[in-house]
Simulated assay, not measured.
Amino acid sequence: MSQISNAIATRDNGPSSVIEQYKPELALVAASHVKVDTFARLAVGALRQNPKLAAAAQANPGSLMSALMTAARLGLEPGTEQFYLRPIKRKGQPEVQGIVGYQGIVELIYNAGAASSVVVEVVRANDQFNYVPGLHERPVHTVDWFGERGDLVGVYAYAVMQGGATSKVVVLNKDHIARAKAKSDGADTEYSPWRTDEESMWLKTAARRLGKWVPTSAEKRTAALERTDAPLPASPAPGVLEAADPDDETPIEGELVD
């Protein structure tokens, strides 16, 4: 059992109480822009809205705090589309797993300050999509927002950098998505986001690939820093996404609670 799990076991292990008790520890690891009181309220709210999540947190409060520590370090809001909290079973035992959502990845890109905008969009069968590398700077995507768009067929992502240049454009088809899904633990279980919110998972896969080509940061650049001549990082901070979000890259022995 981990040190944090041992410490939690000696205290009141109700999930809401654990979060309150460990706010000082969260503050120590949190990105500088995180307001820990607000962060804690979001986490408690997520538990109250999802009885199965609350039960997993009650059974394994150490896993809850591990997930929350990761969210705090990245500066992402827990229990939102930035950072999902979901109940899983690992070797038959319930626990809480933290997963970075596609909006969280976009937030990490914005935090680095190198991008002025980030575009992540799905393409459906009845959309018009055209992108020829070397000919087009960015994809040309035309959508009939009030018509029947059809099934998902692809997804793309790119960033417009400060100064107007376009980053590498990531374009993924159904085969790319299928391979990413195959690496995701519990993808075919009832409560997997691959089944409950498939479009968001397509968006996340593209955003995650983009995050390997543009700078990402857990810390927001301050207005004062942006007024200086300090250079922007030329490449993503190593390990920011990989260490935080194993869901798409490293299959683990676990299944979602159903």
Score class of each variant (00 low, 15 high):
27 A>T: 06
230 A>R: 10
251 P>Y: 02
42 L>T: 05
126 N>G: 15
51 P>K: 04
249 E>A: 13
97 Q>F: 13
33 H>F: 13
206 A>M: 11
16 S>L: 09
67 A>V: 07
110 Y>V: 03
81 E>H: 12
149 R>T: 05
159 A>Q: 04
146 F>D: 10
220 K>M: 13
189 T>P: 01
221 R>V: 15
201 M>R: 10
147 G>R: 06
185 D>G: 11
83 F>G: 00
44 V>L: 01
215 P>G: 08
248 D>Y: 10
127 D>W: 01
35 K>R: 08
46 A>T: 07
86 R>H: 12
231 P>R: 02
90 R>Q: 11
251 P>L: 11
13 N>W: 12
176 H>K: 14
192 S>R: 02
80 T>Y: 12
28 L>N: 15
220 K>P: 09
228 T>I: 08
234 A>C: 07
5 S>L: 15
29 V>A: 13
155 V>T: 03
235 S>P: 05
77 E>W: 15
217 S>K: 01
241 L>K: 00
70 T>R: 12
133 P>L: 14
16 S>W: 03
189 T>R: 12
52 K>N: 05
61 P>N: 09
208 R>F: 09
125 A>Q: 11
253 E>V: 14
139 P>F: 04
136 H>N: 13
236 P>A: 15
130 N>H: 14
150 G>E: 11
184 S>A: 15
183 K>M: 13
19 I>A: 02
240 V>E: 01
186 G>F: 07
168 K>V: 08
226 E>G: 11
10 T>A: 08
191 Y>H: 10
177 I>N: 01
131 Y>L: 00
68 L>S: 01
14 G>R: 07
165 A>P: 06
215 P>F: 00
249 E>Q: 13
53 L>F: 06
232 L>M: 05
254 G>R: 05
191 Y>Q: 13
105 I>W: 00
14 G>L: 02
156 Y>P: 01
246 P>E: 14
107 E>Q: 15
58 Q>Y: 08
129 F>K: 08
252 I>G: 08
115 A>W: 00
217 S>M: 04
2 S>W: 02
1 M>F: 02
78 P>L: 07
209 R>K: 15
3 Q>P: 12
174 K>D: 14
67 A>P: 00
42 L>S: 07
246 P>H: 14
63 S>Y: 02
231 P>T: 03
12 D>A: 06
135 L>E: 12
144 D>T: 12
97 Q>N: 13
29 V>T: 14
234 A>T: 11
176 H>I: 06
163 G>I: 05
184 S>P: 04
49 Q>K: 14
217 S>W: 00
193 P>D: 06
107 E>Y: 01
100 V>W: 00
161 M>D: 04
143 V>R: 08
60 N>M: 06
245 D>V: 06
87 P>G: 06
127 D>H: 04
109 I>W: 02
68 L>Q: 02
241 L>D: 00
154 G>K: 03
220 K>F: 06
15 P>W: 05
123 V>Y: 02
53 L>R: 01
65 M>C: 13
141 H>R: 03
154 G>F: 05
